[in-house]
Design a binder for these strands. Structure first.
Lengths: 139, 139
DNA sequence: TTATGTGCAAAACATTTGCAGGAGT
DNA sequence: ACTCCTGCAAATGTTTTGCACATAA
């Protein structure tokens, strides 16, 4: 975990990863980014994609989403915003509602933590899956 | 994904898993539950623990937490509540603040999803880690 | 020229699954 | 008996890592 010592080199691989990520709003997984990037850089390795997504998220260039499901997802939109995940197909979308004000302060009062940020993940059914009359397990 | 057809049998393994989970407030991972349970049932398999945690969370008996980090965590407190995770040590605690009213409706208006629920995950430093003067990467 | 980055492959984790035998009803 | 459940081990899926070579500054 290094400081601002040497800035990250802007390699071709990093540039392409960032460009491809900016193109989409689908919050792709590392493997999906790999597939997108490989069309332009066929010899790139999956390890490189993982390494660079991690580095870029550490430096605040992109966002690493730790939402539900088995894989991490990545987002080129770094402005704080919330997400909704379809419990049927696993798709993740942005929720364009205002960020909840004062919620971090409430949490600070109700815990012994120094609160830095928060994230809200909504769960539901996307338009397509809702149409299929999918019956979720209500609990 | 079956309905309420046959209720789950209350086997010794399931009973012990649930009892151990009720004992703690640490939101243990599957592997931590395995370690706790193994002290009482040395021959239980890790697969059984995973299978039963999954089944119990499907039936609403326990909560599967899909918070940040690499592993899923489990909670015997099923009443809706929020969580805070220490970015330094990874510990997860409850946040005893009221559930945000009307937030699902806001999200429904700002997305094309049928919203079912939401979860808020706060990120910060726990009391112990904050004392250690840990310098987080602010972004 | 030299620190940093890459491709490749193997390793490390986390979780799921197949199956033969075991237990509850 | 019959079904559901378990232990075990192997398989799967995701992410990380070691290392020799490549490349940007």
């Amino acid at each position: 975990m290094q400081e601002e010592s040497t800035p990250m080199r802007l390699t071709t691989q990093r540039q392409v990863i960032l460009e491809e990520l900016i193109k989409v709003t689908s919050h792709p997984t590392a493997n999906e980014v790999y597939d997108m990037v490989r069309k332009r850089l066929p010899r790139i390795g999956l390890g490189t994609v993982y390494r660079n997504l991690e580095l870029m998220s550490e430096s605040g260039l992109i966002l690493k989403l730790e939402v539900g499901g088995t894989q991490k997802r990545f987002d080129a939109v770094v402005k704080p915003h919330y997400h909704v995940r379809c419990i049927h197909c696993g798709k993740v979308n942005d929720v364009d509602m205002p960020v909840q004000q004062g919620i971090n302060e409430s949490a600070a009062q109700s815990s012994h933590y120094k609160i830095l940020s928060h994230h809200i993940e909504f769960t539901g059914l996307c338009y397509q899956c809702a149409k299929v009359q999918y019956q979720p397990i209500m609990n």
